[in-house]
Design a protein around this nucleic acid. Structure first.
Lengths: 369, 369
DNA sequence: ACGATGTCTTGAACCGGTTCAAAATATGCG
DNA sequence: CGCATATTTTGAACCGGTTCAAGACATCGT
């Protein structure tokens, strides 16, 4: 590739430049006295063209102010953009705000970088726009976040007939290709860790189960959850509790809206109750870190007074004070599989489950004697 | 827009479907017995088509497994993608890692969201790839980060003949359209704040001045800086110092590489010196927060023992412990102007300077008596 | 019943390149 | 020098839609 022009001035008059001033490959070819095919090769496959000719064409192109082959023309013929679209049922800023999404995109973009691919962000927030946004995204494949509650997003994406993959397994639809972690076993491991340290008095700080609502919830609510991620994590906690002979009913579950305000409101409730837990099972690092903040602000020591284990293993968890014990998702692997699926050209099928890994840091300790 | 198909199966055999199984608008039109123009309207301008006809075409399309109008075909004709490209001389992951870039993109994407535009991330890290990446980005305009040291990036972008704007003013080239903050006056305000509190014993924790190197630097080094952002901030500090009668030479400047490790190494140096400062002028919030972390880890109190003022006003600064005093950039405004410039269709010219604002939080206080 | 006034449809031009078989030219070899 | 082989160049087909002037058809008022 060597078609860089220093000062590009629009010189009209020479050659058959269009009235609107844009010059196309055809004009350059004509002006240089070569066929359009040769002109095309000068830019796209320079080594197929004799050096003399190449330089001449380049010179003419420069003089005419040719902007280089238009990407759309090329695209049309080649049919490949070399870019992944990442879509979520969230505003675009979600990709830069949510720690999990951010970490995921960090990995995705690293991988794309390595293979020279681009990343296009698309928002599928409002129903009216999903269609348009997905339809008009210039990409070779899609990575979909937050599938649940996103039937429409999946439907529209499918209609586009481009490879796609959903992140976060869930829903009953087996025809949706997805990659995700085994939330049940991960959550079980988190609970086992706490129980193994001697905690018997637990509470769950939950991520969202459905479209709305927050507060203490019961088993039925959990089982009826719309978001399988939250449900499965609860299920995993319960497995560990049952195995340890701790009644499920004795472990209250507080549903948050995954905002700082709602999380801290739930902490008020949790720590204001008659019996307060010595350890908290948090369904995401994000809420876990807000919980820690609340505890500190209320004079409690972590892990001295209360232990807490998060979920996700976002980068922030590692540098938090104190560093957060958490269940780490294999993000790099997830990202790699997702990009492969989206850019691979073939539609992936079925679900792939990956395992999480317990990372013990400094927010968990045995309960005070 | 209502061309959503439920189950899309590739039914070949009906109509003139291509051997490779892909069906195009032409095939649908033929199969439906309408002209291609009408078929096009069914998808792009449904209200121009009689309902009956529209539904029939839609039905045929669905039966044939038509994926909807190909975006490239449309693009070619319309010549507009409705997307901005954001490019930096950094790996793609920079957009998700660096607090400033992240904040910027958060705003950019919010704005794009609002106007239904997409965001494409492009990396211009390696010289070999700049050309290709910029050339092949399917966007209507570019927002370029980190212009300095990015002559090539600007050059290539210019050659593309698409509107673009550089963020971070700098360099001497007046022909590069740019938006940025007035670093000199911002830095002056930061220093004045500290001086106003009574500090006379200051130190500067600097962002990068050039391609490499870290450690204490002198005036000449600063003046010869490659990155005008760092240089201008130093210049602003000096203005305030001079006005207060504090000799510039008495305020050491420690250049970091803007990494945690290098920042904390500089803190070692700074606080290990004969005379230690009572207040630190940090050229970015990122390094400021690492400095705070170092101070706490070494048993020092902020702002009790040492005051510190950052620069940028990233969201993290607000929720840090303690919340960071900083010079806030008007990010929303910057983002809005940048998007307008990139998507506006017309090339913006000249430079636009915006002012920063001092936000006093909890990392600055009068020096200990 | 007739011209005027919409409302739909059509057909062809066009968007801006890439590709590939075939033709033209250059090079190598005995 | 003549033929075989490489290297370049050409021309036309093709990628998949949108657009718009002009034609076809339907409706309305008188």
């Amino acid at each position: 590739m060597c078609y860089v022009f220093g000062m590009v001035a629009k010189i009209s008059g020479s050659g058959g430049v269009q009235p609107d001033g844009t010059v196309k490959l055809r004009d350059v070819a004509k002006a240089a006295g070569v066929s359009q095919g040769t002109a095309s090769n000068v830019f796209s496959k320079p080594d197929l063209v004799r050096e003399e000719v190449r330089e001449h064409v380049l010179k003419v192109a420069q003089e005419m102010g040719y902007a280089g082959p238009s990407i759309t023309g090329r695209l049309l013929r080649q049919g490949r953009v070399n870019a992944v679209g990442v879509a979520a049922i969230e505003p675009l800023s979600y990709f830069f705000e949510d720690p999990w999404a951010r970490d995921l995109l960090r990995h995705i973009s690293n991988i794309c970088d390595a293979q020279g691919a681009g990343v296009a962000l698309v928002s599928a927030l409002s129903d009216e726009r999903v269609d348009w946004n997905i339809q008009s995204a210039v990409v070779d494949g899609f990575i979909l976040l937050c599938v649940e509650g996103g039937d429409r997003l999946v439907e529209v994406t499918r209609a586009r007939q481009l490879p796609y993959v959903a992140l976060a397994i869930g829903g009953d639809d087996d025809s949706i290709p997805a990659i995700g972690v085994d939330n049940v076993s991960g959550a079980r491991a988190a609970a086992e860790h706490l129980i193994g340290l001697g905690h018997r008095n637990l509470a769950v700080l939950a991520t969202t189960f459905g479209l709305e609502g927050m507060g203490p919830v019961d088993e039925a609510h959990v089982r009826a959850a719309m978001y399988s991620t939250s449900r499965d994590r609860a299920l995993g906690y319960w497995e560990a509790l049952e195995a340890a002979g701790i009644p499920i009913g004795s472990v209250p579950i507080y549903e948050t809206r995954e905002t700082r305000a709602s999380t801290q409101a739930m902490m008020e409730l949790m720590m204001g109750a008659e019996t307060t837990p010595t350890a908290i099972l948090a369904m995401s690092d994000k809420v876990a870190m807000w919980a820690v903040e609340w505890l500190f602000r209320h004079g409690m020591n972590v892990p001295g007074d209360v232990s807490i284990v998060g979920f996700d293993g976002v980068p922030e968890a590692e540098v938090a004070t104190p560093p957060l014990t958490t269940m780490e998702q294999p993000m790099a692997e997830i990202a790699q599989m997702a990009v492969d699926a989206a850019l691979g050209g073939k539609q992936m099928t079925g679900k792939r489950y990956l395992e999480t890994r317990l990372v013990v840091r400094e927010t968990t300790a045995p309960p005070r004697a």
